[in-house]
Design a protein around this nucleic acid. Structure first.
Lengths: 248, 248
DNA sequence: CTCGCCGCTTGATGTGGATCAAACTGTGGA
DNA sequence: TCCACAGTTTGATCCACATCAAGCGGCGAG
């Protein structure tokens, strides 16, 4: 049992891992399902997978056959260019779905890598489609999840295409804060699971720039930064920075 | 009949606009459907909509209730920030689907604007979901289309986050060339429907930079540019530029 | 507890693309 | 037909962020 990325069928653990009893069910795939519908979804999700920090749940080029719901932990997704350049395309936390990039071609187009020891629910995709044909609420919610991923990507495109470094980092922190809040954590105090380099890659900046902007934010009393420990002191002002409305 | 964005039921035109006889069916929603299945899809798509250059099929904030397949013409989608900044998030041509951004919130999150006089098929979304529950091939293909939109967005994020101006424009031209080719047009000669400013907005560049890079490409014998008329002279070299492999 | 290293911070300098400015051109409308 | 103007090109200058460089500090392995 020392294997670092193990796949294990549910058995006695079943009750503990069922969607119905999962603390993340209001954020995850079962949103809007009745109890019997949720039971049917449970039948489908019979595998969990634990992943150690640094390991992947899939790599670009891997055959696609499942999507993954983050049960615990933190992930990033990474696209690669032939010439070696790469870019972080997203960070994922509890209740969020990873892997929808693979549906279009039956092959994954990015790497999904754990930023800390993590656990995901494996959702076999063809069985999800089967069930979606029978359970309208599931079908509709899945479409919403994919649509939101598209909208999120548009937000990142906006950020990369027309925001300056301070605005990008402010937007990033505000977004993280909101997602932590939705999960019952503090809106103002959290640990970053990713390095400055990963943040930079996601935001289209170099790690030095990320570091400098953090320092500037700290000097201005917006946040307190100690390595990966972040405390947001002034969320409203951070939102102003994000929206270009610096008070001169 | 002078209204600029008219909605008209199909009647005698029916045969002409049915998916089954549409030249774009191999690129559009009906991919992989049998004849009877395609007939059922036809039943659902009972509206076409013509849109004059400059007009929108929907705006950010509009209620979402349909997606749109481009029948003819050319569109852009635009996201807006409160502070007035905006960004082009995509260009769409025949056979491509617009509007999936609205599924997540029931509201559209961007504007969809015609870059020339155009026509779209209106696909009522709830009826599309109904039919998807009965026709597996349709369900699966729709999922593929959404997934590809996500993958395309990741490509743009890569481009915006880690490519230089010349690489971006080269990637843009290669992409357009491929899409025109798939539609039976010349891979090397086409008219741009968008302005330098719109290209720049999409690529995270200013219009002056786009213009300068076009000129540089022309000087180097990669393309011939006359306003919106583009002739790609050396596709392989353009692909090299895109991949950072400048021959010193 | 200590060592080594990875990740972070900070400074100095360089540069790609933005900005400002001016002139040119093709097009659509009166 | 001609005018007005939106869109484009090109040049000069500027600046935000990249790059290069050096030192720091916290954490995990032993």
């Amino acid at each position: 049992m020392l294997s670092t990325s193990s796949v294990q069928p549910l058995s006695l653990e079943r009750l503990r891992t069922a969607c119905s009893t999962c603390g993340l069910r209001e954020l995850c795939l079962p949103v809007g399902l009745s109890q019997p519908e949720m039971d049917r979804l449970d039948d489908l999700i019979s595998l969990r997978r634990t992943t150690k920090k640094g390991q992947s749940i899939y790599r670009a080029g891997d055959r696609f056959d499942a999507i993954y719901a983050v049960r615990s932990g933190f992930f990033k997704t990474n696209v690669l260019l032939e010439d070696g350049r790469d870019q972080v395309t997203g960070f994922y936390m509890g209740g969020e779905l990873i892997g929808m990039d693979g549906i279009g071609t039956e092959l994954h187009t990015c790497d999904a890598i754990a930023l800390e020891d993590s656990e995901v629910c494996v959702i076999p995709f063809s069985r999800l489609e089967d069930l979606s044909r029978e359970v309208q609420a599931l079908q509709h919610h899945f479409h919403k999840v994919m649509s939101r991923e598209i909208v999120r990507d548009h937000g990142v495109m906006m950020l990369l295409g027309s925001m300056r470094a301070e605005e990008r980092l402010a937007a990033f922190l505000v977004n993280l804060s909101q997602r932590f809040t939705a999960r019952g954590y503090s809106p103002s105090e959290f640990y970053l699971r990713m390095t400055r380099e990963e943040i930079g890659s996601y935001l289209g900046l170099k790690l030095e720039t990320v570091s400098r902007v953090f320092s500037r934010f700290q000097d201005e009393g917006l946040v307190s930064v100690q390595q990966k420990h972040i405390r947001i002191i002034d969320i409203p002002r951070l939102k102003q920075v994000m929206s270009h409305q610096q008070p001169c």
